[in-house]
Design a protein around this nucleic acid. Structure first.
Length: 310
DNA sequence: CCAGACGTTGTT
DNA sequence: GTCTGG
DNA sequence: CCAGACGTTGTT
DNA sequence: GTCTGG
């Protein structure tokens, strides 16, 4: 809110300096354009300039500031941003297949040390017709079947355990399309102060392969008429290992819950929801890792190594 | 009935 | 698709 | 999750 | 700030 007032006054001053338009008129025009976004305000300012002058537009163009100049929030020590938005899956397809009892042909994929949203990543689903578990590559970021705008995907990378049963975006998938997301570790960013954050890896203490609780959906691309499959990872309360780093963590399912979650065994909605409790902290561990994991273009084995200087 | 929403993270 | 709000 | 982009016009 | 892309 405050930023908008600042931008409006800045643009007002700039308009007066450049075009000599009466201040009242400038203010009225900027108000009329309204809106809550930053860029439309700049567009509005440029509209005003265009209406006033007959000179080449480019010379009068107003651009957004390089730094949008928002005051930094006070430090919130102990808790920081970050929850299931990045993980690793460097186990081989055949090892994943063995551990999860997957049958049939396997997809090929390289070891991933910085798996990120919108990427094709391995997911385990139960095929009720053939009665077998399958391993497929799906895109991370759930697009509901009814979505008109598929760019919603980057905001649907997680589903909250507390609302997943009832929210319109997830309820059908919760009832009919649950999946397991194989992983070796996930990353969290702990906020150290207003400008600094430290990424951590969190994994099983014995470094074994495990599984997030996931949901998947199909969306028919109107341009290609092809069905695209996407998935999301459910988040919930953190356990004692994750809590010092963040206030959420992905729901992790132990092997004895896989059958129910995949729909191989009967389970009521209450029983399914009960599976999404925090995974026992005793079995897990966390360690600091290199800041390079922040950039999705980095994907190297050393990203998962312990950082000693943190 | 139709229109419109449907989500996550984080912040103060 | 399905549900709520008007 | 983090990183990075983010708007417009008309004339030459 | 908000939004998209990876």
């Amino acid at each position: 809110m405050g930023w908008r007032v600042d931008v409006v006054s800045k643009l007002t001053a700039e308009l007066l300096r450049r075009s000599g338009v009466p201040e009242e008129k400038v203010r009225a025009l900027l108000q009329a354009f309204g809106g809550s976004a930053m860029m439309p305000l700049y567009s509005a300012a440029n509209e005003i300039i265009r209406d006033m002058r007959g000179q080449p537009f480019a010379e009068f163009r107003i651009g957004p500031p390089r730094n949008f100049g928002v005051e930094a929030a006070p430090a919130n020590l102990g808790y920081g941003p970050g929850m299931c938005g990045r993980y690793t899956i460097h186990s081989s397809p055949s090892l994943i297949a063995e551990r999860f009892g997957v049958t049939g042909s396997l997809p090929n994929f390289e070891p991933r040390y910085n798996a990120a949203p919108l990427q094709q990543l391995p997911v385990i689903r139960f095929n009720s017709e053939t009665k077998e578990r399958r391993l497929d590559l799906l895109r991370w970021g759930l697009v509901p079947s009814w979505a008109k705008d598929p760019t919603i995907d980057s905001r649907m990378i997680n589903a909250r355990q507390e609302t997943v049963r009832t929210s319109g975006a997830f309820k059908t998938a919760f009832a009919k399309r649950r999946c397991l997301v194989p992983t070796d570790a996930f990353y969290e960013w702990k906020k150290l102060d207003a400008k600094t954050k430290q990424p951590y890896a969190i994994a099983m203490a014995d470094q074994s392969l495990f599984a997030f609780a996931g949901l998947w959906e199909g969306w028919k691309n109107p341009a290609t008429q092809l069905w695209e499959h996407t998935y999301t990872i459910i988040t919930g309360e953190p356990n004692a290992v994750a809590a010092p780093i963040h206030d959420r963590m992905p729901a992790i399912l132990p092997p004895d819950a896989w059958g129910q979650w995949l729909g191989e065994e009967e389970a009521s909605p209450d029983e399914l929801a009960a599976l999404l409790k925090p995974y026992p902290a005793e079995a897990m561990t966390a360690w600091p890792v290199h800041r390079d994991v922040g950039n999705v273009r980095n994907d190297r084995p050393d990203l998962i190594e312990r950082l000693n200087s943190a």
